[in-house]
Simulated scan of single mutants.
Amino acid sequence: MKKNVFKIGFSILIIAMIITMIGCSKKPVETPAPPTGTGNSAEEGDIIVDPEPEGEVVRVTLYYVNEEYVTTGRDTLKKVLSLEKEVTVGEKSLEAVILAEIQKKPEGDKLSTALENIKILSVDTAEKIAYVNLAGDRLSGGSLQEDLVLHQIVYSLTELKDIDAVQLLVDGSKRETLMGHIFIEEPLKRQDLGY
Rank of each mutant, 00 (worst) to 15 (best):
L134H: 05
E67H: 11
L13E: 11
P28A: 09
E54V: 07
A16Y: 08
L121A: 15
E43A: 09
P51F: 06
L160N: 06
H181L: 04
Q152R: 00
L13C: 07
G73V: 01
K2F: 08
E116Q: 13
Q152T: 01
S143I: 06
I120V: 04
G55C: 02
L168P: 07
K3C: 06
K92Y: 14
I47H: 12
K128L: 11
G136F: 05
E185D: 14
E186D: 13
L144S: 12
G194P: 14
K105N: 15
P53Q: 07
K3M: 06
G180D: 06
M17N: 10
P35V: 02
S122Q: 07
I48L: 13
L115D: 10
V89G: 01
R190T: 08
P32S: 08
T31Y: 14
V89T: 03
T177Q: 00
F10S: 10
L178Y: 05
G136M: 05
S122Y: 05
P53N: 02
E116M: 13
A42K: 09
V70P: 02
T38D: 12
G194V: 06
Q145K: 15
E176G: 00
E107L: 06
R138N: 08
M1T: 08
D147T: 08
T72A: 05
K174H: 05
D147P: 13
E68Q: 08
V97E: 01
K105R: 13
D46S: 12
V29T: 12
L99T: 02
I47S: 13
L160P: 02
F6P: 03
D109M: 10
P53S: 07
A100V: 01
E127L: 09
G172F: 03
K78S: 10
Q167I: 03
T88S: 06
A126N: 14
V132N: 02
G39K: 06
E186T: 02
E43G: 14
T72R: 12
S173H: 13
G39F: 07
A96P: 00
V57H: 03
Y131I: 04
K161V: 01
K110I: 07
L134D: 04
L178V: 02
V80I: 01
K161R: 09
I8F: 12
N4E: 15
L111D: 11
E107W: 04
S112V: 07
M1D: 11
K3Y: 08
S122A: 08
H151S: 03
